[in-house]
Simulated scan of single mutants.
Amino acid sequence: MKCNIGKTDKIIRVILGACIIAVGVYYQSWWGAVGVIPLLTAAIGWCPAYVPFGISSCQTKK
């Protein structure tokens, strides 16, 4: 697994994941568990949805 998530993308995913979890807890819904997905992808630095499209937000070294 090659890193395909950059720093800004990771920050956005962490914030989004935390918000989804918070809304799920607030409304007492198990849908808040979906927030774990962006947190997990940010933690490992790899998004499987980016692979088929060849997307990468990592900076390339010159």
Score class of each variant (00 low, 15 high):
residue 53 F to V: 12
residue 13 R to H: 02
residue 11 I to L: 09
residue 59 Q to A: 12
residue 51 V to E: 06
residue 39 L to P: 12
residue 23 V to E: 10
residue 41 T to A: 14
residue 3 C to R: 14
residue 23 V to Y: 13
residue 9 D to N: 09
residue 58 C to H: 00
residue 48 P to D: 02
residue 21 I to G: 12
residue 55 I to T: 13
residue 50 Y to Q: 02
residue 57 S to H: 12
residue 10 K to N: 00
residue 21 I to H: 06
residue 29 S to A: 10
residue 23 V to L: 15
residue 9 D to C: 09
residue 58 C to T: 02
residue 31 W to P: 06
residue 12 I to N: 07
residue 16 L to E: 01
residue 47 C to S: 04
residue 26 Y to P: 03
residue 34 V to Q: 01
residue 50 Y to P: 07
residue 4 N to P: 04
residue 21 I to C: 14
residue 31 W to E: 06
residue 50 Y to H: 03
residue 62 K to E: 14
residue 26 Y to W: 09
residue 6 G to T: 00
residue 21 I to P: 13
residue 6 G to F: 01
residue 62 K to G: 14
residue 51 V to G: 05
residue 35 G to K: 01
residue 44 I to W: 04
residue 56 S to G: 03
residue 7 K to S: 07
residue 34 V to W: 07
residue 10 K to F: 00
residue 31 W to C: 09
residue 59 Q to E: 09
residue 40 L to D: 08
residue 59 Q to M: 10
residue 39 L to D: 00
residue 4 N to I: 01
residue 52 P to W: 04
residue 2 K to C: 03
residue 18 A to Y: 05
residue 44 I to S: 06
residue 56 S to H: 04
residue 7 K to N: 03
residue 16 L to S: 12
residue 2 K to P: 11
residue 5 I to F: 10
residue 4 N to G: 00
residue 53 F to K: 10
residue 37 I to L: 15
residue 30 W to L: 11
residue 10 K to A: 00
residue 11 I to W: 05
residue 41 T to H: 11
residue 41 T to F: 15
residue 17 G to Y: 02
residue 57 S to D: 07
residue 46 W to V: 15
residue 5 I to W: 07
residue 29 S to N: 09
residue 17 G to V: 05
residue 55 I to N: 06
residue 32 G to P: 10
residue 11 I to C: 08
residue 56 S to L: 04
residue 60 T to D: 11
residue 34 V to A: 10
residue 59 Q to D: 11
residue 13 R to K: 07
residue 36 V to Q: 03
residue 4 N to M: 02
residue 8 T to M: 15
residue 35 G to S: 05
residue 11 I to R: 11
residue 51 V to H: 09
residue 39 L to R: 02
residue 59 Q to W: 00
residue 62 K to R: 14
residue 47 C to D: 01
residue 45 G to S: 03
residue 33 A to R: 02
residue 27 Y to C: 11
residue 6 G to A: 03
residue 8 T to I: 15
residue 54 G to T: 03
residue 46 W to Q: 15
residue 45 G to V: 05
residue 32 G to C: 09
residue 53 F to W: 13
residue 36 V to H: 02
residue 38 P to N: 02
residue 62 K to T: 13
residue 59 Q to G: 09
residue 52 P to C: 07
residue 38 P to H: 01
residue 45 G to Y: 05
residue 2 K to S: 07
residue 55 I to Q: 07
residue 58 C to S: 01
residue 6 G to K: 04
residue 38 P to K: 03
residue 43 A to F: 14
residue 44 I to E: 03
residue 16 L to G: 10
residue 12 I to R: 02
residue 16 L to W: 10
residue 32 G to Y: 13
residue 22 A to K: 09
residue 57 S to Q: 06
residue 36 V to I: 15
residue 49 A to R: 09
residue 26 Y to C: 08
residue 9 D to L: 01
residue 32 G to Q: 02
residue 14 V to A: 01
residue 57 S to F: 15
residue 20 I to V: 15
residue 6 G to H: 00
residue 39 L to H: 04
residue 43 A to E: 05
residue 55 I to C: 12
residue 24 G to H: 01
residue 27 Y to T: 13
residue 41 T to S: 13
residue 15 I to G: 08
residue 27 Y to G: 07
residue 39 L to N: 01
residue 41 T to Q: 14
